[in-house]
Amino acid sequence: MSTDPNQAVACRTVDAEERSLLGRVLDRIADHCRARSLFVLHYCTGCGAIELPPTMTSRFDLERVGMQPMVTPRQADILLITGYLSVKTLKRVVMTYEQMQGPKYVIGLGSCTINGGMYWNSYATIKLLDRYIPVDNYIAGCMPRPEAIQQVFLDLMGRIDRGEAQAWKDYYRRYDWYLGQQQQLFGTNWQAPTDVVGEAIRYRLVGEQTLGSHTAHLERYAPYYDQLGIIRPEPARMKARPQLEVVSR
């Protein structure tokens, strides 16, 4: 068995250049459909949420372009962050993001997600969202009008259609980096329930920075969580561990 984690596990998701003609056609169709069927999960902790009702309802009618609101991260394609995020809510955002299924897209709405906005001076809010999770599009403004939101959606749709919106893969490929940023805020014992590394191995998305010193902390604290009975490693996760060590060397 190869030590390359991307080869270790048989999987049907391969990079576009490796795929056959039929595969590429299928990918094209899939991207086409993805672009026209976007389910949105609103993370409405900020004031920007107030702009969403007019965007969705009869004035602008988002359903025209196949977008629908969804209520759980499992069903959603887009995570819409509608404003400032405190450290506490960021934990939830990270967890929610990890629970979404790829391809998944994040849109930061309003200035707060870009530079903290009016909360620039606050010790409790984050300043730049894409340090913690990959963001596909930002919408500047305090707050942006529905037209701007729509504009961004259309932009995102176009990029999905062209197969360019791949930011979600970045999270797997550079998980160690993202995790490091998260750990800076939450402490080194931070652990979300989703096994991102396992998924990266599973779907051949392991990159140079998937594993590193920060993911090692996950290992370090795993027994601690086990002991508390808080998060038990499940069989899939247990299987992935030995290979992890190979890679991290």
Partner: peptide, 22 residues
Amino acid sequence: GNRSVRVGQFDNYAGGQILTAD
């Protein structure tokens, strides 16, 4: 569909709450 990954019972939607066995 693409093959699935098996997740644990605590990797579950709980409105953003991190689940614990206690």
